[in-house]
């Protein structure tokens, strides 16, 4: 059985996505991506410097990867749309992860502006992956607007606090007919595995990889955990019980 994630018509096997931010040296990125077989990588357009071959982050991303430019730095829908168009114009493809953040303290996404930007960019022909706080009504709006996936946060960006929003994400997985990609806050491979066991379609983690002592090995650990979690989900987890279950103590006499 092949188990592929399909987004925007592209087949994705490795369901662990990562980003290019916070690394000590861009030169580590190709090694990290290749050794883990990572296929989807997000990059902030604000950091893309086309005029400098040495500093241009795009030169460090293997050509086989699916580039997911993000609109980091956008404070409203309009800025997100402009950044997305600039990304497409400079050869980053037509995928976009919408990040609209007007809160520099907790970096929580602005769901309302994100939904507006999603609507506009879908009409412009983008494959849109909006980053949101997990909220069912907003996720439904995004689905109706034509988003390609929904990316709810597990915890605020960069906090490594894990799946704090577990229940809300579970609801999105149950109710939204789009891939749910858990993005932000995931600090450990075990947390990524848990999200996958719940039925998430993929997990994106950047800080946990980039700030690890050995980012290359950490990326591998995440890839393996995501794969394990996916397999467990497909295999169907057994029911969880508090106590060992005897045979029917109340109705056994009927047998």
């Amino acid at each position: 059985m092949t188990d592929k994630l399909i987004i925007g018509g592209k087949e994705i096997t490795n369901r662990f996505f990562t980003g290019t931010g916070k690394h000590a040296n861009n030169a580590i990125i190709p090694q990290l991506v290749n050794e883990s077989g990572i296929e989807v990588i997000t990059v902030a357009l604000r950091r893309v410097d086309l005029t400098s071959p040495q500093e241009n982050i795009l030169n460090y991303i293997p050509k086989r990867c699916i580039l997911l430019p993000n609109t980091s730095g956008a404070r409203n829908a309009e800025e997100a749309v402009r950044i997305a168009k600039l990304a497409r114009a400079c050869g980053c493809g037509n995928w976009v992860k919408i990040e609209v953040i007007s809160d520099n303290k907790y970096l929580l996404p602005d769901n309302y502006e994100t939904a507006k930007a999603t609507e506009m960019l879908v009409k412009e022909g983008f494959v849109v992956l909006p980053y949101v706080s997990p909220d069912l009504m907003v996720a439904k709006d995004l689905e109706n607007a034509g988003a390609a996936a929904v990316m709810p946060l597990g915890a605020p960006i960069g906090t490594n606090r894990g799946l704090q929003t577990r229940e809300l994400i579970r609801i999105l997985i149950d109710e939204i007919n789009l891939p749910i990609i858990v993005d932000a806050g995931i600090g450990r491979p075990s947390e990524a595995a848990e999200a996958m066991e719940m039925g998430a379609a993929a997990v994106l983690a950047n800080t946990a990889v980039a700030t690890a002592r050995d980012p290359v090995t950490m990326a591998k650990a995440f890839s393996m955990a995501v794969e394990a979690g996916r397999k467990a989900y497909l295999a169907g987890l057994g029911p969880v019980k508090v106590e060992a279950e005897a045979s029917s103590p109340l109705t056994g006499f009927l047998d």
């Binding site: 000590a24 040296n25 950091r47 730095g73 800025e79």
Partner: peptide
């Protein structure tokens, strides 16, 4: 780079012209 830090030359994209 020697100290294990990435020098960032560009951290914002001017939105002019789009």
């Amino acid at each position: 780079l020697e100290m294990g830090y990435q020098p960032v030359f560009k951290d914002w994209q001017s939105l002019d012209g789009e």
